[in-house]
């Protein structure tokens, strides 16, 4: 028998405390609210799973969730290929590389609400450059009136704000590929497309996984941009999950249902990230027979 010393557990204590205060305790507050009806600060009733049942049956929530999923999917479908394309076309060395890097990274430095404000003004049909230009060209563009226009504007805003992140991640990934791979490809007579398909894309797998997860989680939590642009409208066109949650928790002060909703929201993100991660882990490593 090996001697067992349980004192080693004490070494884990600082981490346990940190995690408790930073993540577990706040989350537990929500759990606490989600099973009670808060009538006033000193009057509360235990209601069990009632809020969860009502939240899961809430039709508005289903619509917000669907809208959210479509939006996040659109974000990934646009930003990932666009980011890869940008990274591929960025210069690798010299002063041009630095200049391009700084320019590309610029939009990442702008706070969310400023981005919202910029596009809110930019898209106005009376004074905004984009709005006026589109109107002059004969496009019937009006984000305050048209659901499609508002939705597309939020999407474009997100693409403008965050594609550089994907591009920078891919750029770093591309620079990490040793020259020998490109040289070998030239010797083997590989076409530009084959170089991308068989060298660059497989080598980018790691950074792409990070990019997809980051962009998915972030877009799934989008709040500020639609809030600044139209406040979730017109109608419910840009009311994504966060908007809906805020309307419930702050607007109507339904703390119980809002808490239950938060937990469901959290579990959805966790589940989707888990699925995405496992899927991407397997892509490109499974036993497939090419060629």
């Amino acid at each position: 028998m090996k001697p067992v010393d349980q004192k080693a557990w004490l070494l884990v204590l600082p981490v346990v405390l940190c995690v408790a205060f930073s993540a577990v305790l706040p989350l537990m507050t929500i759990v606490n609210y989600s099973v009670q009806d808060i009538i006033s600060p000193d009057q509360r009733v235990f209601v069990g799973t009632e809020w969860f049942r009502s939240v899961l049956r809430d039709n508005d929530l289903h619509e917000a969730l669907l809208r959210q999923l479509v939006f996040s999917l659109a974000v990934l479908l646009v930003e990932i290929p666009l980011g890869i394309a940008l990274a591929l076309s960025m210069p690798a060395t010299g002063w041009r590389a630095s200049a391009v890097l700084v320019t590309v990274a610029l939009s990442l430095l702008i706070p969310w609400n400023v981005v919202g404000t910029i596009w809110q003004i930019y898209g106005r049909t009376d004074i905004g450059l984009l709005g006026v230009t589109l109107t002059t060209l004969g496009v019937d563009y009006n984000y305050t009136g048209s659901s499609v226009d508002a939705w597309v504007t939020v999407l474009v805003m997100d693409v403008w704000h965050w594609t550089p992140l994907v591009a920078l991640l891919c750029y770093a990934g591309l620079r990490a590929i040793p020259d020998a791979y490109y040289q070998a490809a030239r010797i083997d007579g590989a076409s530009r497309l084959a170089v991308f398909r068989y060298i660059q894309l497989p080598k980018l797998r790691g950074v792409l996984m990070i990019a997809v997860l980051l962009r998915f989680m972030d877009s799934f939590m989008i709040y500020t941009e639609p809030f600044v642009l139209t406040g979730g409208g017109p109608g419910n066109a840009t009311t994504f999950l966060s908007q809906y949650l805020t309307q419930k928790a702050v607007g109507q002060f339904d703390l119980g249902p809002a808490a239950a909703f938060s937990l469901v929201y959290f579990l959805i993100i966790l589940l989707l990230c888990f699925v995405l991660y496992n899927w991407m882990q397997r892509v490109g490593t499974g036993e497939r027979h090419d060629g």
């Binding site: 497989p202 080598k203 490109g284 497939r288 090419d290 060629g291």
Partner: peptide
């Protein structure tokens, strides 16, 4: 230098 996603044959 090998093409990771391909088989040895490919």
């Amino acid at each position: 230098v090998v093409y990771d996603t391909m088989t040895v044959r490919a």
